[in-house]
């Protein structure tokens, strides 16, 4: 029957078309839809109007600057000593000879004078260089002194900062402890040491690392939950201090 022919004629065509539709749909699904394959990378930028001074203490005293090379005055080339007048071989007229001798003497004296002047000049230069060196030494000493003073000051600041950091760390630990909920019985000395990274907005970067587990899994877990629940953590308003509190090692102990 011919109608069978018609149908089978369409069959191959239809199957190809159907496969095409599915391939198209699959392509749209795979390439057209953003499947959240990667977690969005988050960046944070802080805009500070007053940049905190970098901590001064740790910078070591810079090595004393090398004394400036003394200005090397190019030593004037010693003028060649005048060659001794040649003995005249032929005795000439007396006057002429005398005159010549006088002239030669004068020339010698002149040369001597010139030499002396040069020597004097050299001496003066040496003196100046010496003075310069002394001055530099003094300056260095002064700088070193100033630096040591600064270092002392920085150390004091550091100490102050440290106590401040300690204060805030204690506040953080208090907050975390208030947020820990445990139902199990936990022995009194249980303490867990965790390391957290605090973002400037007071949130804690996951994952939190347990440095030294307490040995009690329930307490460890409860402490982590407590940290997550205490976000945002109390932080100082001073950006410099806050930066110092980026990485914190906390000891969380059970007390009750």
């Amino acid at each position: 029957m011919n109608r069978v022919n018609i149908q089978s004629e369409h069959r191959a065509q239809a199957f190809v078309l159907a496969a095409g539709v599915h391939l198209l749909f699959a392509a749209v699904l795979v390439f057209g839809v953003a499947w959240h394959a990667k977690a969005p990378q988050s960046y944070e930028a802080e805009l500070w109007t007053d940049l905190p001074q970098p901590a001064a203490a740790p910078t070591p005293v810079p090595p004393p600057p090398r004394p400036e090379e003394p200005i090397k005055a190019v030593p004037p080339k010693p003028i060649l000593a005048p060659t001794p007048p040649k003995a005249l071989a032929v005795p000439a007229a007396d006057i002429a000879l005398k005159q010549k001798k006088v002239r030669e003497l004068q020339a010698q004296q002149l040369n001597l004078e010139k030499l002396a002047a040069q020597k004097e000049l050299k001496n003066a230069q040496a003196l100046r260089v010496e003075a310069l060196r002394v001055q530099q030494l003094q300056e260095q000493q002064a700088a070193a002194q100033a630096q040591s003073v600064r270092a002392e000051k920085a150390a004091a600041e550091q100490a102050a900062k440290k106590s401040e950091v300690q204060r805030y760390t204690n506040a953080i630990i208090d907050k975390i402890k208030s947020n820990i909920r445990v139902t199990d019985n936990i022995s009194k000395g249980t303490v867990v040491q965790v390391k957290i990274t605090v973002l400037p907005d007071g949130s804690v970067l996951e994952p939190i690392r347990i440095m030294i587990p307490s040995g009690n899994k329930v307490w460890d877990e409860a402490a982590l939950q407590g940290i997550m629940r205490s976000q945002p953590l109390p932080l100082p308003t001073d950006p410099a201090l806050r930066r110092d509190m980026r990485d914190l090692v906390l000891l969380i102990n059970y007390e009750k």
Binding site: Q13, A14, A18
Partner: peptide, 8 residues
């Protein structure tokens, strides 16, 4: 199958 029948 249904798509190929549809086209057919």
């Amino acid at each position: 199958m249904s798509w190929s029948y549809i086209f057919m």
